[in-house]
């Protein structure tokens, strides 16, 4: 048994007034160490809910989530999370945002700055250490959020459509940089997106989810050699297949 993350019979239901809706039903998933896993699906399929439960922000109705063999019960710095919305603390400079996790751990100040500087360099923001978030572009904000998550040296990186609110050009650049970071840090990454292009470009494996109730309908290994070309024929074929799958399971939306 050599899984980084194991999800067993995970179900999540929400109570709306009198009726109960299943946001997720019987989800099973294993994630290997260092794997880059993308989760795609129509909106409302529960992909964000799944990620939030792994982060510990939401509690499953039944089933369990094991990270490195230990059950996930509450949020913890060993699961780094990057949100879709900009989530920097506006009153902290870039470097102070990145050191926050370390500050909470009460690590030695010098060490805090050493780690933070490393992470900031890793996301290509050297020179912006003392800027406030309002001085940064959307893409830069998300880079800081990634650096901040990495500073805690998490066991897994959870990303919830992190590039959803940046423009297309920046998005491509950020994807490339994320792959570089992933290759260098050897982190396990769980990446939620609604973009097939993004999933095919980034992932080792793509999980396709269907809506109402949310469940996994397909696991697809992306075997295209890296570095990938966005316009390669292989990539296009995969896109085509994923698109068909999504259409099939999204008939209701």
């Amino acid at each position: 048994m050599n899984h980084k993350l194991e999800i067993r019979n995970l179900t999540k239901s929400f109570n709306t007034n009198s009726s109960e809706t299943n946001a997720l039903e019987n989800v099973n998933l294993d994630v290997k160490p260092n794997e880059f896993l993308c989760i795609i699906g129509p909106s409302g399929c529960g992909k964000t809910t799944l990620l939030r439960m792994i982060a510990g922000l939401d509690k499953p109705t039944s089933g369990e989530i094991l990270l490195d063999g230990k059950e996930v019960k509450e949020p913890s710095p060993d699961r780094g999370m990057v949100f879709q919305e900009f989530s920097l603390f506006p009153w902290r400079t870039v470097i102070k945002n990145v050191t926050l996790g370390l500050e909470i751990k009460e690590i030695d100040k010098e060490e805090q700055y050493r780690i933070a500087n490393e992470c900031i360099a890793l996301v290509g923001l050297k020179g912006f250490e003392n800027h406030y978030p309002y001085e940064l572009s959307g893409g830069m904000k998300q880079r800081v959020a990634i650096a901040r998550a990495l500073a805690n040296d998490p066991s897994i990186l959870l990303m919830d459509e992190p590039f959803g609110s940046v423009d297309a050009q920046t998005r491509n650049v950020l994807q490339e940089e994320l792959l570089e970071i992933w290759e260098r840090t050897k982190k396990t990454v769980l990446f939620v997106t609604h973009s097939i292009d993004e999933a095919v470009y980034l992932a080792d494996r793509v999980i396709v989810m269907s809506a109402r109730p949310g469940s996994i309908v397909e696991c697809m290994n992306i075997t295209v050699a890296r570095p990938r070309k966005r316009t390669s024929i292989e990539a296009n074929e995969l896109r085509e297949r994923l698109l068909t799958l999504l259409k099939l399971h999204c008939a209701l939306c």
Partner: peptide, 28 residues
């Protein structure tokens, strides 16, 4: 909410730390 949750995933366990690192500076 996103700032509170960010605080949680960064290691703020319990109200005391969330208030100190997130809510208080936000409310200043």
């Amino acid at each position: 909410k996103v700032l509170v949750e960010t605080g949680k995933v960064l290691g703020c366990t319990g109200d005391k730390k969330l208030i100190r690192y997130v809510a208080f500076p936000y409310a200043l």
